[in-house]
Design a protein around this nucleic acid. Structure first.
Lengths: 227, 227
DNA sequence: GCAAAAGTGTTCGGACTACACCCATGG
DNA sequence: CCATGGGTGTAGTCCGAACACTTTTGC
């Protein structure tokens, strides 16, 4: 009895300032009727990443997103049907594109806030927990956070993204100073006016997706000249 | 034709102040006679981690080491025999235990310095490159570095480990201050004397393996009382 | 007394934290 | 004129980096 290989994909987005994940309701046994993260078997000629992208497209219609391999889970017994090793990925989708369509083999699909998840099939709870941990870490030292926003956004919207992922409020002045120091935002000559208050300046994310470089000084050494 | 699943394991150690990796010479086609990292098929009832540990034991006789899942590689065509997905792990072995024994299905095994690797079978070069990157990152924010040393060691030995992994020299005073600040070393009342110079104090690594916590202050907020 | 490694202190700059008030707008 | 979010500056602390000389030993 050979081992079968699937990819599962955790799809994150931000909705109304809260981190959400896309779940599908299983139409078939096992765990029929339960919620699960999208996934499926890896096909003949495709790479693991292509398989993940295919699942993503089937569920959301979206392509060209941030996608990263998370971890592989393969405990015997994690799938009652037999030995299944899954390679888990996670994807980040900007809120303006986050419109799920029901998958082919899924009866139903929907966005769930990470703070209140339903019971999940298989070991998917564990996968979700780990992907959140990873996302939080990445947020600290890369610019993945921008993946959740449309091209133009306000600084407060950006801050809300960070807060939603980290799960704690941030201090406005410090947050803005940090962003300014990173020099990855271009302030636009456009303002968004909404509500009864001062309009907010729009910004663009400029610079490719990259790790945040804490500009190191070059290291020199004790230059004790021979006496 | 089903996908087959293997684990491959990158086994690191430090020898004469340089980072080494354990390679085995392949006895069978494909890539017969070439060097490769140890690995093998995942068996029926074992977890992925158990499979990695089994390979590790077969190659080195060593158990109870630092072991971490690295990444999964599954491009079609990475193995000419057919579709093989491999889950790569890496392990860290202290220099005093790093005595390889030839594996069961391997003709020969040996430690190679990471700076001068032979041509490798499959996509193993890529796996090695990635594992080094990961090891370097982990070194910065965890205490994995200690895994390479015996229980008692000198501060200079510890510094050599860090230098070997990072591939650059470090500054002695800063390195020692940092270690002192972390409070994870117990200085012993023992000294090692060797060579014609002042003896070096021995230290022990105390505290469990853990991430290095940059002690955050609790964040408070603008407490503008309502006027 | 000399060669060789062990050991040690201070200064600077960058980044993070804490913290409170004025500004522009629409109603 | 008021409610609402947008926007801004300063002071303290911590940490990493730079940098050179004294100590102890065996020969």
């Amino acid at each position: 009895m050979p081992i079968r290989v699937t990819v599962d994909i955790v799809i994150f987005t931000i909705r109304s300032s809260r981190l959400h994940v896309l779940l599908v309701r299983r139409g078939l046994a096992p765990f029929k009727g339960q919620w699960a993260i999208p996934g499926g078997f890896v096909r003949e000629g495709e790479t693991l990443e292509q398989a993940a992208l295919r699942e993503l497209r089937e569920e959301t219609g979206v392509d060209e997103v941030y996608l990263e391999q998370l971890y592989s889970f393969g405990d015997p017994g994690r799938d009652p049907r037999g030995r299944v090793v899954t390679i888990a990925y996670f994807a980040l989708i900007s809120s303006d594109r986050a419109v799920p369509v029901a998958g082919t083999d899924a009866a139903e699909a929907g966005w769930f806030p990470m703070q209140s998840l339903p019971p999940l099939a298989f070991d998917h709870r564990r996968i979700l927990d780990y992907s959140l941990e990873r996302l939080r870490n990445k947020l600290e030292y890369t610019t993945v956070g921008f993946q959740f926003l449309p091209r133009k956004f306000t600084l407060t919207e950006l801050q809300r993204v960070y807060e939603a992922i980290l799960g704690r409020p941030l201090e406005k002045r410090n947050f803005r100073r940090k962003m300014a120091l990173l020099r990855i935002l271009r302030p636009l000559r456009e303002w968004r006016r909404e509500g009864v208050h001062r309009p907010a300046r729009l910004h663009q994310f400029v610079a490719e997706l990259r790790p945040i470089l804490p500009r190191r000084r070059r290291q020199r050494f004790d230059a004790t000249p021979p006496r």
